[in-house]
Design a protein around this nucleic acid. Sequence first.
DNA 1: TTTATATACTCATTAAATGAATATACGGAG
DNA 2: CTCCGTATATTCATTTAATGAGTATATAAA
Lengths: 196, 196
Amino acid sequence: MPRQQAPLSLEYILLGFLEQKPIHGYDLYKQISGFEPISLVWRVKQSQLYALLERLEDDGLILSTVIPGESHPNRNQYHLTSIGRQTFYAWRNSPVQHGRDIRMEFLAKIYFALLAGPETVLDLIEEQKAVCYEWLSQFHNDLMNTSENQIYERIVFQYRASQVQTIIEWLESTRKEIGNQLRSVSAKKQNSAKTS
Amino acid sequence: MPRQQAPLSLEYILLGFLEQKPIHGYDLYKQISGFEPISLVWRVKQSQLYALLERLEDDGLILSTVIPGESHPNRNQYHLTSIGRQTFYAWRNSPVQHGRDIRMEFLAKIYFALLAGPETVLDLIEEQKAVCYEWLSQFHNDLMNTSENQIYERIVFQYRASQVQTIIEWLESTRKEIGNQLRSVSAKKQNSAKTS
DNA sequence: TTTATATACTCATTAAATGAATATACGGAG
DNA sequence: CTCCGTATATTCATTTAATGAGTATATAAA
């Protein structure tokens, strides 16, 4: 059998943009590869984007409507199905299960969680932190089961433990910053409510 | 044009094993996926391994000799060419240029550097640390050029800076441990030289 | 009028990854 | 002594993904 179908992950980013409003491939490409800061963590070629859209449609997560062009070529406008919407929310609200997926996939989740509001981000961060603590104790466990003379193994496990430890600290500091903003915004609201 | 040929990286691991002694695919697979701790950072399927060997041969880095089987099936024994050997040493002794390559590729380099001896590891670590400091100042720069209200950008850059910072600390602590071992070994040598 | 650029997508080609298949020898059970 | 599973050693067909280039129309500019 062939290269196994990777269990999606970055296609969800497309769902995330479609969740905001229906859009066609060309505009979606301009948005993603242009001004949107998601381009800090994910870059896609135009032809790849069209292929991904097709796959999402095959999976029933999005649907296309042809918009005939008068002053422009025909457009293939995509919008989420209700399954697509549920699938996206489930993805956005759940932590990643491997350290290697923090770099792109988790940062992408954060991107959309921020759009959804501070509470969504805070929930996501808490859940991810819990998973990270599991990783951390696993790596500490690995280290304990490694003898002094297994130099390479120790180096690898120390690397992993230190990276996860840092991710946890970063999550915590991000949580605090978001929390502070939340409080300062609500304080301002209170303030303007009083003075008005 | 097609998916571009990735500029090698983990194929070098195969070169590293061939550098130790000529070997055929089946034994190589058993070694890599079995007892060798390199399996902590890289796993390969048997069929993939054969494909990689073929590619390395096409690239002129290894050569195969058919060893006819009397008490076993025919073997395709591979050995390094002199270009292959040079290519491997150059790879092993040079740092990686992207943070995402620390996790597997740099750890693989460390594996072979350890086999070559403590001095090789120490050199590699120093070079990698220098590169990491460049990354770090780049990320700090990114952060400085990001305004307070670009929340997402700040989160991403803080993540990256913290990860690199931790890699530097891990490199430093690894360097110390290797250095200590070197000194304790040479101390023992001196000691046994005295007492003998 | 020609020419370049923006719009919007489609396609052919290639690389990589994988499970399964192939083929031979060997050791032990019945 | 034969049958059958396991170890040895490699090859193959299939699928998916990724990419540069190609197509086609409209609009703006020279």
